[in-house]
Amino acid sequence: MTSQRIAVERDPVEPGPDRPLTIWVDGEPVTGTAGQTIAGVLLGAGRRQWRTTREGGAPRGVFCGIGVCFDCLVEVNGLPDVRACLRRAQDGDVVADQGAPPSGGSLPEVTS
């Protein structure tokens, strides 16, 4: 695991005790603690990419961490274009890769 949340018992900053929450990311459960952003939960669980770019199909996650680069955009509970580094996670949030190619049933891309 490359990125991770510092375990409360080892953290010199002594954060309050964990209040676990679970978010669903592309169908899989990921746990974090109340007060984390969605990016915080994902990075804390060792996930550092959650968006696929439209043109190049390249993986992206956090870059600026403070809401200015828009690299971390995710779909949250069906609403696209949410900055994961700013939005606090709520238990049960459903998070999806908004850049992923359209799944079956959706409209074709406008091409030409």
């Binding site: 984390q36 915080g40 580094c85």
Partner: peptide, 11 residues
Amino acid sequence: ALAKGERVAVG
């Protein structure tokens, strides 16, 4: 920001 605001180590 992640270190201070999330206590997440980026690597």
